[in-house]
Nucleic acid binder design. Sequence first.
DNA 1: TCCAATATTGCACACGTGTACAGTTCCACG
DNA 2: CGTGGAACTGTACACGTGTGCAATATTGGA
Lengths: 331, 331
Amino acid sequence: MSSSEKPSRKVTSFDVARLAGVSRAAVSRTFTPNASVSPETREKVVKAAKELGYRVNYLARGLINQRSDFVGIVAAGMDNPFRAMQIEQITKNLVRRNFRPILLPADHGESADHVMDQLLHYSVSGVLVTSDAPPTALCAEFAAAGVPIVLINKADSIPAVDRVVSDNDTAGRLAATTLIETGARHLAVMSAAAISYTARRRQQAFLACCHSLEADVRVIPVKINDYANGFAAAAMLDGVDGVFCINDYMACGLVDGLRQRGVSIPDDVRIVGHDDVPQASWAGYDLTTLRQPCDLQAEQAIDLLLSRMDNPETAERVEVTPVSLVRRSTA
Amino acid sequence: MSSSEKPSRKVTSFDVARLAGVSRAAVSRTFTPNASVSPETREKVVKAAKELGYRVNYLARGLINQRSDFVGIVAAGMDNPFRAMQIEQITKNLVRRNFRPILLPADHGESADHVMDQLLHYSVSGVLVTSDAPPTALCAEFAAAGVPIVLINKADSIPAVDRVVSDNDTAGRLAATTLIETGARHLAVMSAAAISYTARRRQQAFLACCHSLEADVRVIPVKINDYANGFAAAAMLDGVDGVFCINDYMACGLVDGLRQRGVSIPDDVRIVGHDDVPQASWAGYDLTTLRQPCDLQAEQAIDLLLSRMDNPETAERVEVTPVSLVRRSTA
DNA sequence: TCCAATATTGCACACGTGTACAGTTCCACG
DNA sequence: CGTGGAACTGTACACGTGTGCAATATTGGA
């Protein structure tokens, strides 16, 4: 009201110290956990701070602590709903643990280099990579610079770089057995194996399982694992009566493409997807799919980050998260 | 190879200066745009920097420049695909302009306070708010602290707080005329007007247009503008043959709900959505909808941010982005 | 050759904070 | 009352950088 302050300058710990009649160190200690301050000093400081609207400058704190509470998230393909789920889980988890997530979209391959390079200018506490095209060399550089880095669903084994990967082998096997069990005899797997480790791995496991069961199986290659490619692929399914789509995003496209061609699901063609994105449970699709617990993945990835912050010398670790079959109406 | 350096300590401009045989100021100037350095000095510095793997510490730079290149993004309801589009556009635009987006999920109302409060500890260059529940008081506090803040699709007019809003009035009118034009006679609008300014505004415009055309119209209130509520609302449509869904996310639910009840679209019920999310163009829905240009919104929001950074005293401004009708098969 | 104008350089300070160290106060116990 | 210890406080330095200012080197012209 009457306090018509002009906040032209940021208020610093000096101002608070002066107003509270204590040393600046006392102010610092008041806002530092586990520091030694007497109750009355603390009270004076808190009062003065509130009056001035003081907030600790975390950048300055990070400068001296060599640790900034920032965590970089490198993500590509944000049109895929699963990516959105991932990012939501990761950011929420980070914020809950008092980190600040810096979100870096890295779609065009070469831009990932540039974008990740930028991160090295901030003293990020760590980096999470969910991109499909991570520059391996750059990851190694982060590790060399002492920045903990965790890859989610990535291939490359890099010294000192931890990973969280979904159980793709079980996924491929469950997909195959479910399709066969529900009556499919001529199977196929749709994936852009060339550009995605995850797709490659699931495809291999699926094929291996089919072969061991002596089932007829073929590969339907696509360029990108997205809706449009799934939709278009509906035209290339002659004779196939059971398809494993490497992700739900593409599976939705396939379902729509098949329906448009008058193919009945699951009577003519059975479909199993992967990820359990929200759309998979929508009544319009009701996809049978393999759920990937992206909340758990976020949790484990950040745990790995923290653990490596404490002792950076550990050998690289791999956490495998379980998949679970969600039976719906497409298989 | 042979250079078995132990990078235990961060390399600073001192190290570079020593190796290059120049002063530390020369190093700083080399990496500062528009600074005066001779070509040969610059070359020596660049060479030394590359050899040591030196990177400017942006936190320290921000400390002295009073300006970190961080921009906070406060977002809620990330399950809505439109939010994902928004976040993708905003982050890409920010990165392109050499800012670092800090993504803050703020779902549970009171947590928005806490989360935004955290931002004041970093010298963020600005804040973008897309949340449906923005703490007005806190926004004012940011403005008072001299932090530029832009609201996207928000209601409150706050001194020194700029806004980008979609043209909700035109949206409501276009929805009404399109439904009537395609044969609907008993209209309805579905929205959670209580919790969302956007929903309220579109609903008002829709109702006003219906009234002026003397069309029969009613309101179908829902709790949240999401898929599940849209799906459930399919049971409450007796007599209605044209529905304006406040967003596509909910419209998808309504479509699925109606189909499950054997209602034919658009013969029995016409539907117009809003946002033009990816799913609206999926063959399974093929929603007639109102496109909101979220790339343009991101561009304008960041423009406003920059412009207010230069002169903070400007009166608050409002940019209205156009909507365009996308005719598909549901109306 | 000499001078003025310009370009470049280095010194020193500033940004806002955490914390080791030494000094002070206080309390409990012998 | 004396003493040891614990609790607290303040001083001073460190973190890594940008930049004003004065000093110096360079250039151009007469």
